[in-house]
Simulated scan of single mutants.
Amino acid sequence: MRRMGSLALFARLMTASLSGQARYPGSALMLTVGQFLGTSIEVIAIWALFHRFGNVQGWKIGEVALFYGLVNCMFAIADALGRGFDVLGTTLLRTGEFDRLLLRPRPLALQLMGHDVRISRLGRLLQGLLVLAFATGQADIAWAPASIAIALFALAGGVALFLGILVLQGTLSFWTIESLEVANMLTYGGVEAAQYPMALYARWFRYVLTFAVPLACVAYYPVLAILGKADPLGAPDWMGLVSPLAGFAFLAAAFCAWRAGVRHYASTGS
């Protein structure tokens, strides 16, 4: 019953957030279009790269487009759900509004996830879906039930991973606000890095993206499984079937750090 009550609360918070934005449809539409057009510049850059040089170390534009589309869908959903953690230090802690959330008898993380669900993230999500459609045609991807299941599993793991990064960013706010820009290296920088095959990067960077922030586990290995392509780095074929679990493990570790941060928190007193 408590779980159902928490889920109902999350649904109500999310509905209230979306309803508030819907009161200004022009603004919501412009922000959504802005997200779509802003991320489209990245698509044009990738197209220009492959148009100029052709294949890049054996990777075709359709295959890289699959990386791009899947990763941007992951981040769009996580960014919509994790907005509360993103603004925790700059808004909620400074104004003392966080104290009000602490008084409510519901999970704190769930309240933050429903705090500010942004309609504008639909722009990035739509763009990611369009790129996935482009990748399907360019790479001749046969979306069999097995490949669809892998893609959905990778999507869920990727959402968990990016949400975990946002949770860590919010956790950092309990100690300092000025260093939050460092966390953007993991969010937006992570999105940029995961949009390309890991085989293109230096060995030390591949280790970081596999074992520290497991972006390769939610994007690179599942995409190889969807494409039916052997890993040039030598990973086994079954890797993409289980690697998205790393995203859920990362989220669990992030929430452990979150609980430590909440215990460290001292009220503003105002």
Results as ranks from 00 to 15, higher is better:
L227G: 01
V87W: 06
C73F: 08
L161H: 02
A78R: 00
P197S: 08
V213D: 03
M1L: 08
A212T: 14
A48C: 06
A76F: 06
A135H: 04
L152W: 07
L215P: 00
A252T: 05
G34M: 05
G26W: 13
T90Y: 00
S6Q: 12
R263S: 09
F50M: 00
L155A: 10
G96V: 02
L130S: 07
L132C: 12
R106S: 13
G228Q: 03
L92Q: 10
M14G: 13
L251F: 10
G128M: 07
K60I: 07
R206C: 11
P145Q: 11
G5P: 08
F50N: 04
Q169I: 04
A257L: 11
R263V: 08
Q21G: 05
V208Y: 14
D237H: 14
F85L: 01
R83S: 09
G20H: 09
L92T: 03
A8G: 14
W238R: 14
F205E: 02
C217Y: 05
I41P: 02
T15M: 12
V262M: 01
I226Q: 07
R104F: 06
A76K: 12
V159P: 00
P244D: 06
A212L: 11
A109Q: 13
P222H: 10
H264K: 15
G5V: 07
A230T: 11
I44S: 06
A78P: 02
A252N: 02
R83Q: 12
F98Y: 14
A260V: 10
A142Y: 02
Q138R: 12
G69N: 06
V43F: 10
V159Y: 04
V167S: 04
P236W: 05
A260W: 12
L172K: 01
G157Y: 05
G170F: 00
L112P: 00
A76L: 09
M239R: 14
P25K: 04
L152D: 00
A183I: 04
V117R: 03
G20A: 13
L241W: 14
G123P: 00
A16S: 15
A135T: 09
L88Y: 02
Y24W: 09
K229P: 00
S40T: 15
L37S: 12
L70R: 02
N184Q: 12
T187Y: 06
L152H: 02
Q138M: 11
S270M: 15
F36N: 02
Q195E: 14
L37Y: 07
D231C: 02
R121N: 06
V218I: 08
A22T: 08
V223Q: 08
E181R: 11
G62R: 03
V218K: 04
V167H: 07
G261C: 12
T268K: 13
T32V: 12
L132A: 07
G123C: 11
T171E: 01
T39E: 11
G58K: 03
N55C: 09
S173L: 03
Q111Y: 06
R121F: 04
P232A: 09
D231K: 02
A65K: 05
Y221K: 09
G189M: 15
G123Q: 03
F211H: 07
L110P: 04
W258S: 00
A194P: 01
L112E: 01
T32A: 14
V71K: 00
N55S: 10
W175M: 00
